[in-house]
Computed example of a mutant assay.
Amino acid sequence: MASWLYEALLLFAMGLIATLVFSVAIDMRSGMDSRRWLLQGFLAVVFGIYFSFFWSKGQTLPMKTWRITVVDRHGQRLTQGRALLRYVFCSIWVLPPLAALASRQFTVAQLSVIFFGWVAVWAVLSRFHPQGQFWHDAWAGTRLVDAR
């Protein structure tokens, strides 16, 4: 989970640059623009490219720092397709809180509790996997291993 914080810093910077490029390209001058769903989709694609590229190489920079490697069930590097599938399944970490956000029924404090509560529950559910892996890894046919 500490790797997540480092990854979040990188994604924040990458998201800022991608948003700038997108906003200039389509002349989007406000976050309240009716085309903001296009920006959200664009960012999802940019992040998908980032993760699938680096996971197919074995590690992102934060994963290198914490000596974590992602491999397939046979211990081999991921293909681009498998890495992209893992990215899709990883969305389970954020989709339920995003659905709560989209409902516009919750305050910021309530959304924070929903997000952190969901992440905690989803992380604890890994304890029920026979090898202690996260369920998105089991579904994608991948696993995290010690890079040492």
Score class of each variant (00 low, 15 high):
Lys64Cys: 07
Phe47Gln: 14
Gln59Arg: 09
Gln59Phe: 04
Arg73Val: 10
Gly75Met: 04
Ile49Cys: 12
Leu43Ile: 14
Gly75Phe: 02
Gln40His: 15
Trp66Gly: 00
Leu61Thr: 10
Ser52His: 04
Phe47Tyr: 14
Arg73His: 15
Met63Asn: 05
Arg67Pro: 07
Ser56Arg: 06
Lys57Tyr: 13
Gly48Glu: 09
Leu43Asp: 06
Val70Leu: 04
Val46Cys: 11
Val71Lys: 13
Ile49Phe: 11
Trp66Thr: 02
Pro62Lys: 11
Val70Asn: 01
Ala44Leu: 15
Ile49Asn: 06
Tyr50Gln: 03
Lys64Glu: 08
Phe42Ser: 14
Ile49Pro: 06
Met63Gln: 05
Ala44Cys: 13
Gly58Glu: 01
Leu43Arg: 11
Thr69Val: 12
Ala44Asp: 14
Gly58Cys: 03
Ile68Lys: 00
Gly48Cys: 09
Trp55Asp: 03
Phe51Trp: 12
Gly48Val: 09
Ile68Gly: 01
Thr65Tyr: 13
Asp72Lys: 03
Arg67Cys: 05
Gly75Pro: 04
Phe53Ser: 11
Gly75Ala: 07
Ser52Asp: 04
Arg67Met: 03
Ile68Met: 03
Asp72His: 04
Lys64Gly: 05
Trp66Ile: 01
Phe51Ser: 12
Val71Glu: 08
His74Ala: 14
Leu43Asn: 10
Val70Cys: 02
Asp72Thr: 06
Phe51Ala: 13
Met63Ser: 06
Gly75Cys: 06
Leu43Trp: 05
Gly75Lys: 04
Ile49Ala: 12
Leu43Glu: 07
Gly58Leu: 02
Pro62Ala: 12
Val70Thr: 09
Pro62Leu: 10
Trp66Val: 01
Ser56His: 06
Thr65Phe: 15
Phe42Glu: 09
Arg67Tyr: 02
Tyr50Glu: 08
Ala44Thr: 15
Met63Cys: 07
Ala44Arg: 11
Val70Lys: 03
Ile49Lys: 11
Ile68Asn: 00
Met63Lys: 10
Met63Arg: 04
Val46Ser: 08
Ser52Phe: 02
Thr69Ile: 12
Trp55Arg: 06
Met63Pro: 01
Phe47Trp: 12
Arg67Leu: 05
His74Ser: 15
Ser52Pro: 04
Gly75Trp: 03
Ile68Cys: 01
Arg73Leu: 13
His74Glu: 14
Val46Leu: 10
Lys57Cys: 12
Ala44His: 13
Ser56Val: 06
Gly58Met: 00
Val46Trp: 07
Gln59Thr: 04
Asp72Tyr: 07
Lys64Asn: 11
Phe47Thr: 15
Gly41Met: 09
Val71His: 10
Leu61Ser: 08
Gly58Arg: 03
Phe47Met: 14
Val70Tyr: 00
Val46His: 08
Leu43Gly: 08
Phe42Val: 11
Thr60Lys: 01
Lys64His: 13
Met63Asp: 01
Ser56Gly: 09
Trp55Asn: 05
Arg73Ser: 15
Trp55Tyr: 10
Leu61Asn: 11
Phe42Gln: 11
Ile49Thr: 12
Gln40Pro: 10
Lys57Asn: 13
Ala44Ser: 14
Met63Phe: 02
Ser56Gln: 09
Leu43Ala: 10
Ser52Trp: 00
Ile68Glu: 01
Ile68Phe: 00
Val71Ile: 11
Val46Ala: 13
His74Phe: 13
Gly41Asp: 05
Met63Trp: 01
Val45Asp: 06
Ile49Val: 15
Ile68Ser: 00
Trp55Met: 07
Thr69Phe: 08
Gly41Val: 08
Gly58Gln: 02
Lys57Pro: 12
Phe42Asn: 11
Val71Gly: 08
Tyr50Thr: 05
Leu43Pro: 01
Met63Thr: 04
Trp55Gln: 04
